[in-house]
Design a protein around this nucleic acid. Structure first.
Lengths: 145, 145
DNA sequence: CTTTAATCAGACAATAAAATCCGATTATAA
DNA sequence: TTATAATCGGATTTTATTGTCTGATTAAAG
């Protein structure tokens, strides 16, 4: 199967977009995220815990605890979440899997793929959570119905 | 981890590019492909077997058997190999993993990602094996040293 | 202070992907 | 016609990813 982001990363992106859409409220508990986004509760907890370590998410323990963004939505870029969860391998490794692919010894797809990959990287770097908030609200609204 | 193509698909692309580079000779045995490209022999055999079923590869059984391209290199596009091994999910599924992502109910990244994905698809559709042969020969030459 | 409800932490289980093993079949060539 | 060397096919093992369970810790609220 061809994958772009791991399940972990997909879930992490979904959850953090949800947190951005609920940025007005205090914290959101993992139970709610799990239910709305249809992600196993324990799994999304783990992911948000790791994003807490990365400094992207704030977690409040104990009763009435939950998760929220650790920074203003305009300070969090999609690339921050992707690299925190999946690392940079997608942007560094050869698309054909050649171990020693480099500008000196490029693989047959080096230039073409490099260009596309740079565009993907720039896209994820340009998009911040505040810019996606409206679209996310619409999408979540649809999920709730 | 973030992946583009599965290991199977990477290996398959490497091997078929190798076959294209050796299109003058009769057949190439999996032993040789395994050695040059550093892919487990049994694994690349399996992959080439499945590509044989897909009609992209020709296999000659018995002593002095091996694998070769089933068509002229200019008739095989990279997308053919990718879809034969990994399917089309990469080009159909929502990048954020939302189950019901569609033009009607787009995910927050729908348009931006769609554009990139189309470019990737077109690139894989445009590139045929004959076009990549020279570049492959250089790369293989480097691997052999 | 005690109950309650949440995160946290680490082990564990299930599934999927990657890699290996082995015997059967096939065809070449001595 | 027999030995050899390759693919073929299926089962099996290993490893990584995904998902689950359980108990500890934390903090709010009665």
């Amino acid at each position: 199967m061809t994958v772009i982001f791991s399940k972990k990363c997909e879930y992490g992106l979904q959850a953090i977009l949800y947190l951005a859409a609920n940025d007005n409220s205090d914290v959101v508990k993992s139970e709610e995220i799990s239910h709305i986004l249809n992600i196993p509760k324990e799994f999304i907890s783990k992911i948000l815990q790791s994003l807490t370590e990365s400094g992207l998410v704030y977690s409040k323990k104990g009763k009435s605890g939950g998760f929220a963004l650790a920074k203003a939505p305009n300070k969090i870029r999609l690339i921050d979440i992707v690299t925190a969860i999946d690392g940079m391998s997608m942007f560094n490794n050869c698309v054909l899997g050649f171990p020693h692919c480099s500008p000196d010894h490029p693989c047959p797809l080096h230039e073409q793929w490099g260009e596309l990959r740079t565009k993907a990287y720039n896209m994820l770097t340009d998009e911040t959570l505040d810019q996606l908030k409206e679209k996310t609200l619409k999408k979540i609204g649809h999920l709730k119905n």
